Amino acid sequence: MAKSSKLTLLFLFFCPILLLAKIDTIEVFSKAMNKSLKATVVLPSDSEVKDKDYPSVYVLHGAWGGYLDWHKNVTKPNLLQNLADQYQMILITPGVAPFSYYYDSPLMDSVQYETYISKELIPFVDQNYPTKKDKNARGITGLSMGGHGAMMIAAKHPDLFSAAGSMSGVMNIDVRTWIGNESTQEERRKSQREMLGNINYDYPYSPYTAVGLISEMKENKIALLIDCGIDDFLIETNRQLHQLLLENGTPHEYTERPGAHTWEYWTEALPFHILFIHQAFEKKK
């Protein structure tokens, strides 16, 4: 045997191949909307050999996005797989319509994403994967529109989650609180009218927006993490929610740091969110 071949065999013997977390793509039929939607499920690399259940975290995408965003757009390769292994948890990335904000529309049967996440996707994942079927081992977070979805769904379904987070989230869907992008803002207002009709954008805020759910956030006692870049066009909506939570005495973590509405920011933010949610799980043990 050649010397180089012997060295290769020795290296493989003493340095086992590192396995990445497993990624499944699933398709879940929504009875509420009469359509199927895709999601990815990221499992720890040892999930097939270990007879155990894992906590789960739902990681939501933003507007114009899809279920593969957290795999394709992050600036660090294999970010979700590495986090799933590091914290021994299952990460789920659902896909929804571009400007749905994860709410249930009172006007459109095709926009029932709160029901989809809370009553269709979670039961499907729990039935088909080794998750801990317990709110104390389930979390949710997301970016931009997904940050709104995570905070809203957690506030309205405290029986499902023990921790929720938002990265650069649309904490108020009222486009008057956004900075710049006037043409985009008008498009969003138009789509909101189509899905929600006439809602109250002023105090007392509509329950279709995160700032309208601060009473639920206080009552539910779910661990909350909110962060936003100081150069983000949504910074004022995050500051608004932060101030409202301070005023009503809701415990939460709030961070502003350098950054804008970019994948560089969200790539750096996600590990902090997973750590925060992991620590919330540990406190509930």
Rank of each mutant, 00 (worst) to 15 (best):
G147P: 14
Q279E: 13
L224T: 15
A39C: 12
P158H: 09
G147W: 12
V41M: 05
A163C: 08
E253C: 08
D227I: 02
D69S: 14
A21W: 05
K22Y: 15
I26W: 01
I230L: 12
H261N: 04
Q86G: 01
D51S: 15
T115N: 08
R189S: 06
I122R: 10
T131Y: 09
I230A: 11
K76E: 05
Y208F: 11
Q81T: 02
E253N: 14
Y101K: 08
I23Q: 15
E219G: 03
S215Q: 10
P271M: 08
Q185C: 06
L80N: 05
L244R: 14
L12Y: 15
K52Q: 15
S118I: 13
A150I: 06
Y102L: 01
K133V: 10
Q192A: 12
L68V: 07
G62F: 10
P55Q: 08
P44M: 04
S118L: 12
K135V: 04
D109Y: 12
D174H: 07
G165T: 06
E236T: 13
Y129K: 04
F14T: 03
S5G: 02
M108H: 05
P207M: 01
E247L: 14
A260G: 04
G66C: 13
H148W: 04
W178Q: 01
G165Y: 07
N200A: 00
K221Q: 15
E194K: 13
L213N: 12
W178G: 02
T262R: 00
K133E: 07
E236R: 15
G147Y: 14
V211E: 01
V125I: 14
D126G: 01
A155M: 08
K35E: 15
D85C: 02
N82F: 08
Q88S: 15
T93Q: 00
A210I: 04
R188C: 07
P130Q: 02
Y201N: 04
P207V: 05
Y87S: 02
S168C: 06
D51C: 09
A280R: 03
P94L: 08
I277T: 03
K52W: 03
L121A: 01
E216Y: 02
Y101P: 06
S166Q: 12
D126T: 00
W178H: 04
W64C: 11
I222D: 02
S162F: 14
P204S: 02
G149R: 05
A164R: 06
I117L: 12
M151G: 04
E282F: 08
L234I: 07
W70D: 05
G62C: 09
D126Q: 08
E256P: 09
W266V: 02
G139N: 09
I274F: 01
R189K: 05
V28Q: 04
N73P: 09
E216W: 03
V57H: 01
K31D: 07
A269F: 07
P77F: 11
L225P: 08
